[in-house]
């Protein structure tokens, strides 16, 4: 019976717990990075995800950016019609769910990492630029943050560099590159 209890707890903890902890949500639009960044549109990441002259990241682009090309539907897909009718025409922002959103008290400067350290986007965000559609957004019911912050593996063990965006990842990477930082470098 001891073994059964042990097995039951391990099964519940490793298999059942993540399914209870995370709630799945869909993105407002099935946006294809592959279409935009691939040969069809041939756009670079920076065409929409603007880094200004000083390397500062300006966030997920607003609907105005989409409207530059999609002021009228390009094609007859349902998603295209939804983009134009529901967001571009009424100038309404898309309520994207951001996989990499950090707590407000954590300050992450893209300028220092992208412009200065020359770290490629995929190093932290993964091969997201090749996706056909946004992944299901899994939100932690307790914290309200994306599962991407902890990483897909409930054990917290990452199998790729872009898995997990917790503070230990920042600290480990900084230590690897010989950076010594104080609390207020990231926590304002």
């Amino acid at each position: 019976m001891f073994g059964s209890g042990l097995a039951l707890a391990l099964f519940a903890g490793w298999y059942g717990f993540p399914r209870i902890l995370y709630r799945s949500e869909t993105q407002p639009l099935q946006f294809s990075h592959a279409v935009h960044a691939g040969e069809k549109a041939g756009m670079a990441c920076g065409d929409c995800h603007v880094l200004d002259a000083a390397g500062r990241f300006h966030g997920i682009p607003g609907t105005a950016k989409c409207a530059e090309c999609h002021s009228a539907p390009l094609g007859d897909s349902k998603e295209e019609k939804m983009l134009v009718d529901d967001y571009v025409t009424p100038s309404k922002e898309l309520p994207w769910r951001v996989y990499s959103r950090q707590p407000d008290n954590a300050y992450f400067p893209h300028a220092a990492h992208v412009a200065l350290a020359k770290i490629p986007c995929a190093e932290c965000h993964g091969p997201y630029g090749q996706s056909e559609a946004p992944r299901v957004y899994e939100v932690n019911r307790i914290t309200g943050y994306s599962r991407d912050i902890w990483g897909p593996n409930i054990s917290g063990i990452a199998s790729h560099p872009w898995e997990g965006m917790k503070m230990d990842r920042c600290v480990t990477c900084h230590a690897t590159h010989g950076r010594r930082d104080g609390c207020i470098d990231c926590h304002k």
Binding site: G5, A9, L10, L21, I142, S155
Partner: peptide, 30 residues
């Protein structure tokens, strides 16, 4: 008692206590 004991031991070999502790601390920020 053995079942409960086994479950209790097994519980500490799952991510549940550690993840709940981490998430609860983040929850207090929100």
């Amino acid at each position: 008692l053995k079942l409960v004991g086994g479950s209790a031991v097994g519980f500490f070999f799952t991510p549940v206590p550690w993840k709940l502790l981490d998430d609860t601390s983040i929850w207090t920020q929100n």
